[in-house]
Design a protein around this nucleic acid. Structure first.
Length: 356
DNA sequence: AATTCGGGGCC
DNA sequence: GGCCCAGAATT
């Protein structure tokens, strides 16, 4: 790499200022009560692309349901998914349980402290590996997330586009060069805490920054120009007609999504791809696709749901059927109360108030 | 290297 | 509307 960037950098002073600030100002978070590797692991998975305030209640519920590696290893995957409901990126839950089962079987229930073994676990990438090693095992491995890239881009005044994968590897190199070997846990968490509380994306609080004297962007007045990040392309809009199908027993038709792809293994109300099926053909299409005769009734509402890469435009209709049972394994008629037992994506939770 | 994975908070 | 968030897996 370009190590001349670190030539005149006061690594020791930076470490001391950062760590002392962190120890004095760290938030009292539920996963910071101890260094249990399993808890650190679960918290780091939940915190991927997810803000602290969102994670807190999920972490509490998850740990009370699955206090140990073995509790999670032996749990029903559908129950785990239900516990994850609303948190998003549901493959995280499936990967976590698969990895925990491997830890139970292969590593005698102990989270491995070996970087190679840890990195092979499902869902444990470069960031999470470094976070677990440093926080739970006090090993000096870098843990570079979005916060750390923003902080380092400013402190070292790095103008590389942080949206590019190769740039993250460069930042990991710098983070590895800066990390405290005396207290890698506080150093890594301090970088992230600084990014969350002080070195924020917009309007950073430089006046309160513990490493202001080390920050090249502050010295040069370029804080607002960093980090450089290219824009993501706009999401594609996909229209659906959703059918809230009710039968004579006041039961509603739900279906289980495929085991791969978007919202894998979650349940939902049947969706008709409106881009491929005309309004007048919906009932025929439904009979062919689901084997159930329905009659469309009143439109209930329009909903828009934004994902990272697509936007669902949902037109929600009520519908009636004479059917009482569905042949297909992925289909079920359930009462309003029984709906609560199934993991639903937020987009479909929002339809429940409109059930006929 | 680019795309696929959720959802909420903020402006 | 756009941007950000304690990213990883897949292609």
């Amino acid at each position: 790499m370009r190590d001349e960037i670190l030539q005149s950098f006061d690594i020791q002073g930076f470490q001391n200022n950062l760590i002392n600030w962190y120890l004095d100002n760290k938030r009292d978070l539920p996963w910071r009560k101890d260094q249990d590797p399993y808890k650190v692991w679960v918290s780091e998975i939940m915190l991927q692309q997810t803000q602290v305030d969102t994670v807190i209640p999920y972490f509490q519920r998850f740990m009370s349901k699955y206090p140990t590696v073995y509790d999670l290893a032996y749990a029903d995957p559908q129950d785990v998914l239900k516990t994850w409901e609303g948190l998003g990126y549901y493959s995280r839950a499936r990967n976590l349980q698969n990895a925990v089962r491997e830890v139970a079987e292969t590593y005698n229930g102990k989270v491995p402290d070996d970087p190679k073994q840890l990195g092979k676990l499902k869902g444990v990438g470069p960031y999470t590996k470094g976070a677990i090693l440093s926080i739970a095992f006090n090993q000096a491995h870098p843990a570079v997330d979005g916060n750390v890239m923003r902080v380092l881009a400013r402190v070292l005044e790095l103008e590389d586009d942080i949206a590019q994968p190769k740039v993250k590897k460069q930042f990991e190199h710098y983070a590895g060069a800066l990390i405290s070997h005396n207290d890698p846990s506080s150093f890594n968490q301090g970088l992230m805490e600084l990014g969350a509380l002080i070195c924020t994306p917009k309007e950073p609080l430089c006046m309160f920054c513990p490493v202001q004297e080390h920050c090249r962007a502050f010295q040069e007045g370029t804080v607002h120009d960093l980090p450089v990040k290219s824009k993501a392309k706009k999401q594609k809009k996909i229209p659906y007609t959703v059918l809230l199908v009710k039968n004579s027993h006041n039961e509603y038709l739900i279906e289980k999504r495929p085991e791969d792809g978007l919202l894998a293994n979650m349940w939902q109300f049947p969706m008709v791809p409106a881009g491929e099926v005309n309004k007048g053909e919906i009932e025929n299409w439904f009979k062919l696709e689901y084997g159930i005769n329905v009659s469309l009734s009143a439109k209930q509402t329009d909903l828009k749901h934004v994902f990272s890469h697509i936007i669902w435009q949902l037109e929600v209709f009520a519908a009636l059927t004479a059917s009482e049972k569905a042949e297909d394994e992925r289909l079920r008629f359930v009462s309003r109360e029984e709906l609560e037992d199934y993991p639903f994506p937020v987009s479909h939770q929002r339809m429940i108030p409109y059930l006929p």
